[in-house]
Design a protein around this nucleic acid. Structure first.
Length: 418
RNA sequence: GUGGGUAUAGCUCAGUUGGUUAGAGCACCAGAUUGUGGCUCUGGGGGUCGUGGGUUCGAGUCCCAUUACCCACCCCA
């Protein structure tokens, strides 16, 4: 072997690809039902899009981006997430000029330079949705509901929806100040990481998973304590809408997502039993992001899930995946002379829209039958010297274990009737 | 970026205190049945034991290094 696949990437091979195709089918179906249209954006973008969009103090931007200089000396980055590109396209392709809200979805690979572990890869796949142009809290609820609906369609259970409000530029400064006042005397108790966050983004301290920071943060002011009246009433309305459709959730005032663009609503869906990387999807509102990208003031909300993690959860919970069927017909030959006729017949059968295959390994009749059986062929068409001489073939129904002889020009018609 | 674990056939794994020619199951191929699949039986192919050093009369086994993978921290989907 010349080389292996790069670290943190994977091949999706036959036998595994079927669950991906199933997921993609279900994604397209639910998106159509909820009124989302697909958008496909480039896999790489100008680096500045993510610096501005995702936020240059985030871990993603600081240490996880695949950034390189192209031959035209432009700084290019393999997209680490989908929202920034969607916002860029919303502006660049002037989607803001059309009717609102604009509801988009995407499926595709994302890239983050992390140490791989269970449920975490350097190239991974996200399905995400974005809604531009509505402040309505019912949209927040609908995005969460759609996510939960999607999981339940796949048969996933035991998921927890955590929600929070992270405030807006009106209430952030007050929260920031309160947090700094609270943590200033406890700075020594915090992890080195959080000591840096103290200046840059004190909000993140209450979201830190380190034991010492959790202890130091006990009793710290929460985002919810400091919400301005707009944020507060929006959050109450979101919860009301979730209640209206009886969607269970838990308020987690420590939930602060790692992307800078979130305002108001933030949420995350957690799964047990998929390892330490238990977040199976997350999102939130980003009412200032379009402006940050030099667009007109436009509210937005989005959500994304990691497809690898979904598949992991589905495996662990033994969720059924629709089976893949073998070819409808397998053409088997006995004797060299029959091969030409079999090849001609194979294409006639395929020409009628029936899936059909044959042996390519010069195997014995018995081995061909075995191969056909293993591949799940529904019917086997058998041609040997005798059939060739008589202008007939045998058609064997594999599950019924019965076979009939018919004239070779009636084969397609016979198969179509089955 | 930090820590722990693992590496033997295509896959899952045995391999004792270092000791003859490194095994099993599954998978693959063939035969039993010279024209008929799933079951059974028999046989076969396939391994520089991750890589590079070292210790030893002798290393899959012990030591060192290295790489890859897995898991966790962190971060996130």
């Amino acid at each position: 072997m010349l080389t292996t696949r790069p670290r943190g990437t994977s091949d999706i091979i036959p036998g595994e690809v079927e669950v991906w195709q199933y997921l993609e089918r279900e994604i397209r179906r639910i998106c159509r039902e909820y009124g989302y249209s697909e958008i496909r954006t480039p896999i790489f973008e100008h680096t500045e899009l993510f610096l501005r969009g995702v936020g240059d103090t985030t871990d993603i931007v600081e240490k996880e981006m695949y950034t390189f200089i192209d031959r035209g000396e432009r700084s290019i980055t393999l997209r680490p997430e989908g929202t920034a590109s969607a916002v860029r396209a919303y502006l660049e392709d002037k989607l803001y000029a059309g009717p609102h809200p604009v509801k988009l979805y995407y499926i595709g690979p994302m890239f983050r330079y992390d140490r791989p572990q269970a449920g975490r890869f350097r190239q991974f796949h996200q399905f995400g949705v974005e809604v531009f142009g509505s402040h309505d809290p019912s949209v927040d609820a609908e995005v969460m509901a759609m996510a939960m609906d999607f999981y339940s369609r796949l048969g996933l259970k035991d998921l927890a929806l955590h929600i929070n409000s992270v405030g807006c530029p009106t209430c952030r400064p007050a929260l920031r100040q309160k947090l700094q006042e609270f943590f200033r005397p406890r700075l020594g108790d915090l992890c080195p990481n959080c000591r840096e966050r103290f200046e840059k983004n004190p909000l993140r301290i209450i979201d830190c998973k380190e034991g010492r920071c959790r202890e130091a943060g006990a009793g710290a002011p929460t985002t919810i304590d400091c919400l301005c009246s707009d944020c507060s009433s929006h959050f109450e309305a979101v919860k009301k809408h979730l209640d209206l459709i009886s969607l269970p959730y838990q308020v987690d005032s420590c939930l602060v997502r790692g992307l800078d663009y979130y305002t108001h609503t933030a949420f995350e869906i957690m799964a047990k039993d998929i390892g330490a990387q238990s977040s199976i999807g997350g999102g939130g509102r980003y009412n200032k992001l379009v402006e940050t990208c030099n667009g007109p003031p436009t509210p937005g909300i989005g959500y994304a899930l990691g497809m690898e993690r979904i598949i992991l959860a589905m495996k662990n919970q033994r969720c059924p995946v629709p089976g893949i069927s073998g070819p409808d017909v397998f053409v088997v030959t006995a004797g060299k002379a029959a091969a030409s006729e079999a090849f001609r017949l194979l294409f006639k059968i395929r020409g009628a829209g029936i899936s059909a295959d044959k042996d390519y390994q010069d195997r014995s009749l018995k081995a061909q039958m075995k191969y056909a059986g293993k591949n799940g062929a529904k019917f086997v068409v058998i041609i040997g010297d005798e059939e060739l001489a008589q202008g007939t073939v045998l058609i064997r129904d594999m599950s019924a274990k019965e076979q009939v002889g018919i004239s070779s020009d009636q084969v397609v018609g016979y198969l179509l009737d089955q």
